[in-house]
């Protein structure tokens, strides 16, 4: 498996990145860890005449935990997330999810930026970021703009990012309450058969906030507002759980693949979601 030849660029700053993007347009692609892109290039399913390696661009590798928000640079790896205690203290769902991505070696290289920017429906971070109501910082020739994770994904590998823009950071409002990231997969290294990200806030016996997103059950991650709404104001009794699951099943649109047919995926989606909600509630 040998990729086609390409020109390699390793700019020192974002201006350099944007200059290459501007010069080569569609022919250029940015790469962080490369663990999604390189296999595609080796299989010659991705043609990248100009490859822009972001590793030398400064300011993209920090995890900055503030009182209200968390800013995660695009080059922060899954491994960085797993080992950052300050981050885990305020948003433990990130670590729980990151541990379920790929395998140890891939987590050293796989980045948050690559995971969310790529638009691969199999990636775990996009759904998680939708659950957390994160926003993505995009830098392009016209400066910086912010797009909500919940607005970012249009279709498989199609996002709100323009070809001449680079995703530089993810900004997450500090979550509160109970959380869970639940994922079913065939083995280590596999994408999800179904995965659910859930954040809940409990006051007394009542759920006052619920955010729910699922992964690999449509051509984009699915943030289901209705599923969350079905829980709010309830004490998460069986009826509320059933309603949340029904709402989610209404929003997803899985396709058949080697992981199984549609009926199976829908059923498992419901089971995984229910378990995620129950676990999040037990932690709320």
């Amino acid at each position: 498996m040998i990729p086609a030849a390409f020109e390699y660029h390793r700019p020192k700053d974002m201006a350099g990145v944007l200059a290459v993007l501007e010069e080569h347009g569609d022919d250029a692609r940015v790469m962080a860890g490369g663990h999604s892109l390189i296999p595609m290039m080796k299989l010659r399913m991705a043609d990248v005449p100009h490859l822009i390696d972001l590793q030398d661009v400064g300011g993209l590798s920090d995890i900055d935990v503030q009182s209200d928000t968390i800013r995660i640079g695009a080059l922060v790896t899954q491994h960085d997330i797993i080992t950052n205690d300050a981050l885990t203290a305020v948003a433990p769902i990130l670590r729980e999810a990151a541990l379920q991505i790929a395998d140890p070696q891939v987590r050293y290289m796989g980045t948050v930026g690559g995971n969310v920017a790529n638009g691969d429906p199999g990636n775990d971070m996009p759904g998680l970021m939708q659950c957390l109501d994160a926003s993505f910082t995009l830098v392009g020739p016209n400066g910086e703009r912010t797009v909500a994770a919940r607005e970012f994904y249009e279709a498989a590998y199609m996002t709100a990012r323009e070809d001449d823009e680079v995703l530089t950071a993810v900004v997450i409002p500090v979550p509160s309450g109970g959380y869970a990231y639940e994922k079913q997969k065939r083995k280590i290294g596999d994408y999800a058969t179904a995965a659910a990200a859930v954040q809940l806030i409990k006051q007394g016996d009542t759920c006052v906030h619920a955010a729910i997103a699922m992964t690999n059950l449509s051509d984009t991650p699915i943030f289901s507002e209705d599923a969350g709404a079905a829980l709010i104001g309830t004490s998460l009794d069986d009826a509320a759980l059933k309603a949340a699951v029904a709402a989610m099943l209404n929003d997803i649109d899985p396709t058949e693949d080697n992981r199984g047919p549609i009926a199976f995926k829908k059923h498992v989606a419901g089971v995984i979601l229910r378990r995620a909600i129950e676990r999040a509630w037990s932690r709320a």
Partner: peptide, 29 residues
């Protein structure tokens, strides 16, 4: 495997375990 699943190519690069089949030499420079 050549698709970063099997780990037979694992090396340590700057303190990280990395699958060398999924890194261009240019990245490693």
């Amino acid at each position: 495997c050549e698709t970063s699943h099997c780990g037979a190519c694992t090396v340590t690069i700057d303190g990280k375990s990395v699958k060398a089949c999924t890194m261009f030499v240019a990245q490693a420079s």
